[in-house]
């Protein structure tokens, strides 16, 4: 059975619209023009228990709306949604005890007091037995390196520190399903890595299901084998990340390290007939070539120039994702 099941899920917002200017403002008092915005438009997918899925899309694609419907904050306009056998928008207590939603810039912790005090309140609200709470807390403190943080008032923590405390707070009740909406937004590289490693470890230990949105592809690459891409509320891709890369990366980058004097003084110009020179410095060149021609061009380069080293690289995942969006 799926941990998450959605079928033809739909969310349509009615938005009031008016022209600029005073006249339009007065007219809108009497008659309001509304427009339907299809934030989520008939998407379907299933997530198996214990799976980590990257949920990708540009701003306004409908990711957060979908996560809010899955966590029960939003009522769908149409379609089916089921999380752990519950209908999320009914928000029954049993359901809420098994899920968590972490949103990058929202805070659940009480601002003025140390996180540990908020955790204690959390323990009581979620009916967590004391020994289990202590055990989970120790584990979270250890994994996220929280020891020096949880006794300081939350307002005195840095953004990264606060985010780590937020994530710990959101997981104290050991939820089975985690909705993580940009959990690493605004964090430095070290903090991002730490949280990424933590999510992987939590998933491994507790067999939890994770649906993750992130603008940092490093998060997605590190955590998700499977990705779901949506755009304008519609599903564009659902499958392996590797498959996505294969299908949507139209080109490869050939990086060559030329022997001295290889271009006979013509520099980058000598390489232009082979592909688009995206970088050329000190005899090192990067060429962008069509994927299907990469092998042929490589052998021509090897035949035509004295080369010290050559590598063929996939384009950065960000660019591939952009390709998917453009295709949609």
């Amino acid at each position: 059975m799926s941990a998450i099941h959605i079928h033809q899920l739909q969310k349509i917002y009615k938005i009031h619209e008016r022209e600029a200017g005073l006249g339009a403002a007065v007219r809108s008092l009497v008659k309001r023009k509304t427009r339907d915005v299809r934030a989520v438009d008939g998407i379907c997918f299933d997530v198996a228990p214990g799976e980590i899925v990257g949920f990708l899309g540009p701003n306004g694609a409908g990711k957060t709306t979908t996560l809010k419907m899955l966590s029960g904050l939003l009522h769908p306009t149409g379609g089916e949604v089921d999380v752990l056998g519950h209908t999320p928008w009914q928000r029954d207590k049993e359901f809420l005890r098994q899920i968590t939603l972490v949103m990058g810039q929202r805070n659940q912790l009480v601002w003025d007091i140390p996180a540990i005090d908020s955790y204690e309140l959390h323990r009581v609200i979620y009916h967590i037995p004391l020994d289990e709470y202590q055990c989970t807390l120790d584990e979270l403190v250890d994994l996220l390196d929280l020891k020096p943080l949880i006794h300081k008032p939350v307002r005195n923590l840095s953004l990264g520190e606060r985010m780590k405390c937020e994530i710990a707070g959101a997981l104290l009740h050991r939820p089975q399903v985690l909705f993580l909406d940009e959990p690493t937004i605004g964090l430095d590289v070290t903090a991002q890595r730490r949280i990424r490693e933590f999510v992987a470890e939590y998933n491994r230990r507790h067999k939890a299901t994770v649906l993750l949105t992130s603008h940092y592809m490093a998060d997605v690459e590190a955590l998700c084998q499977r990705v779901i891409v949506i755009h304008h509320g519609k599903l564009l891709f659902d499958g392996d990340l590797a498959d996505l890369m294969r299908r949507f990366s139209a080109y490869k980058t050939i990086v060559v390290d030329l022997a001295p004097g290889a271009t006979a003084g013509r520099g980058a110009g000598a390489l232009r007939p082979y592909g688009e020179v995206v970088n050329y410095t000190d005899g090192q060149a990067a060429l962008r070539v069509a994927k299907k021609e990469a092998a042929a061009i490589t052998s021509r380069l090897l035949a035509d120039f004295p080369i010290h080293d050559l590598t063929i690289q996939d384009p950065p995942i960000e660019e591939v994702i952009e390709q998917v969006f453009n295709a949609g």
Binding site: D112, I113, D117, S118, E120, L121, V124
Partner: peptide, 22 residues
């Protein structure tokens, strides 16, 4: 655990907050 213990915990938390704002 009942509503009573939730209230006690909530009281403790909010009291801690209010003591911050003399």
């Amino acid at each position: 655990m009942n509503l009573g213990s939730i209230y006690r915990a909530q009281l403790k938390t909010t009291m801690a907050v209010q003591l911050q704002y003399r």
